[in-house]
């Protein structure tokens, strides 16, 4: 029996007359890598904000890590991690200071922070850079570090918003290694990306068009369903019909 960590039922968000996300229903299971795709303006960001407890839905139901998105947003925030392309750590703090700070924010004990930061630095091979300012690290390292920091408190789910934009292909793959690793540890990954090859790395993906989820399945099944040879084609087939922009 698969454990469901994200469950939404007809989740909707309206801004005035504009329906940003329109009755989206999905289930994401523990340890799954779930790709959340869509063209610019399809409503991904709005949906993600609701799932993170940052924005109250207009209607519909959703539970994240067992907590209700209307009433228990504070609990949700404790059990999720979040990382976006723009969110890099504090550039003027060192690697170690950043880890300690975010560990502290999530209420980890000092002993916990110590063991976890050592493990984290080892995993990333950043032992020698522990006292380096984050600002002077290469972009790829920053992204890997901020992912590791986002899962420092062992969240049930981690939300990644275009985590690999602009990163070189080798670092991009190293980043996905980290993702797989986290998924192996039972952390659910909810990720958006514009790289269609990355969509293939996900266990299941959903594609949003104009606020609705138009397709939701494993990459292999989606390709079969749309009679396409790559995810790129599937995406095109669906997004081409999009009416609205950002």
């Amino acid at each position: 029996m698969k454990e469901t960590v994200i469950k939404t039922d007809k989740l909707t968000k309206r801004f005035g007359d504009f329906v940003a996300t329109n009755e989206i229903s999905l289930e994401v299971y523990k340890g799954e890598i779930f790709g959340f795709l869509g063209a610019n303006g399809a409503g991904k960001t709005t949906a993600m904000r609701m799932l993170c407890g940052l924005s109250i839905p207009s209607s519909g139901q959703a539970t994240i890590a067992g907590f209700d998105v209307y009433k228990q947003t504070e609990h949700i925030k404790k059990h999720i991690g979040y990382m976006s392309q723009k969110f890099s750590l504090y550039e003027d703090l060192t690697v170690l200071e950043n880890i300690r700070f975010f560990g502290g924010i999530y209420g980890l004990s000092n002993a916990d922070i110590k063991t976890k930061s050592e493990a984290l630095l080892n995993e990333l091979g950043l032992q020698d850079e522990a006292k380096t300012l984050v600002g002077s690290l290469p972009l790829g390292w920053k992204q890997k570090l901020s992912f590791s920091v986002a899962i420092l408190h062992d969240p049930k789910i981690v939300f990644l918003d275009e985590p690999t934009g602009g990163v070189d292909p080798v670092t991009r793959r190293q980043f996905w290694d980290l993702i797989y690793n986290a998924a192996d540890r039972g952390i659910t990954i909810f990720v958006t990306t514009h790289y269609m090859d990355e969509a293939e790395y996900c266990n299941r993906i959903s594609i949003m068009v104009d606020g609705r989820i138009q397709a939701l399945d494993s990459p292999a099944n989606l390709k079969k369903q749309f009679n396409a040879s790559s995810m790129d084609e599937v995406f095109f087939e669906l997004a081409r019909g999009a009416k609205r922009g950002e």
């Binding site: 869509g38 063209a39 610019n40 790129d232 995406f235 095109f236 997004a239 999009a242």
Partner: peptide, 10 residues
């Protein structure tokens, strides 16, 4: 084309 979805990029 950075940050632009695949359809607009094409």
């Amino acid at each position: 084309t950075t940050g632009v979805d695949p359809v607009s990029r094409k």
